[in-house]
Write a protein that binds this DNA or RNA. Structure first.
Length: 259
DNA sequence: CCGGATGTTCACCT
DNA sequence: GAGGTGAACATCCG
């Protein structure tokens, strides 16, 4: 899915709807609504409401509405956002830029005629009213070194811990692989086994990686991902990359450099 | 035709 | 309780 970087692009796009009044809600796919909410209930709650803000926590996009209502948008692996006909991202790595009407899972129509539309071929995303944020860890884009250090404990694989959204919100498979490759850390190491210098290095590299890939255009623009696509070796040393399942996800790393 | 893909959740193991 | 695995969701792509 969109990882933190893509959802942040979505959030910036969603700022366009702040201050605008919702005229109607389209939720043609009941399965897309989480928490047992029906399209009718959602319409009754949202019709006439004004969007007051667009926030992001991890991979969750949050629209603040009048009163205390919050609408949570989740994009799964193939969800895209289109506002007033403008897409935040032309295409995703594992989903074409095509836009079939049946992929339109949710939409807010505004009183001024514009709209906010979620396109999601695989339906892995969803919409939730007042999502519980307690289940999300601190956002990876703003976490401090001490808090990141606290995330790293236990015998679980370092990569699995960094992907655990309840401990650290926002990183997905591609970003974690790129991050660990840049930090020269083996994804299979126990999360609690890093020494103080390694934890500091991980935090420094995290900030740098997010800033750099944000500028390049997203999670799929990392050096490691590009190398993996072309099946050349490690972009730094040229030696063969390893591929295995770690934390339940396909993982690429350089065994020679990542320790 | 087959396998795998930026994610989340849940059942079922050890 | 901690961790791991595999399935499910639905579609595209090589």
């Amino acid at each position: 899915m969109p990882e933190l970087l893509e959802v942040e692009y979505y959030r910036r796009l969603a700022e366009r709807v702040v201050g605008r009044r919702i005229a109607s809600v389209d939720a043609p796919d009941a399965w897309y609504l989480r928490g047992g909410l029906t399209a009718g209930e959602l319409g009754a709650l949202l019709d006439g409401a004004v969007v007051r803000g667009a926030r992001r926590q991890g991979k969750l996009l949050l629209l603040d509405l009048d009163g205390d209502a919050v609408l949570g948008l989740r994009f799964g692996m193939t969800g895209r956002l289109v506002v007033d006909g403008v897409a935040a991202i032309d295409k995703l790595e594992y989903s074409s830029g095509r836009r079939e009407p049946r992929w339109e899972r949710f939409a807010l129509r505004f009183a001024d005629g514009g709209d906010l539309v979620m396109i999601d071929p695989r339906r892995l995303g969803g919409v939730e009213l007042d999502p519980c944020l307690d289940a999300l860890g601190p956002d990876a884009a703003s976490i401090g070194p001490a808090a990141l250090g606290a995330v790293l404990d236990g015998g679980v694989a370092l990569k699995a811990r960094l992907l655990d959204q309840s401990r650290l919100a926002g990183l997905g498979n591609l970003l974690v692989d790129e991050l660990l490759w840049r930090a020269h850390l083996d994804p299979t190491r126990p999360a609690g086994g890093l020494d103080a210098a390694e934890r500091r290095r991980l935090h420094r590299v995290l900030r740098r990686t997010l800033a750099e890939l944000d500028g390049r255009g997203g999670s799929h623009t990392g050096d490691l991902f590009v190398a993996r696509d072309r099946s050349t070796g490690c972009p730094r040393c040229g030696r063969p990359l390893a591929r295995a399942t770690v934390g339940g996800r396909t993982t690429i790393w350089c065994p020679a450099e990542q320790r």
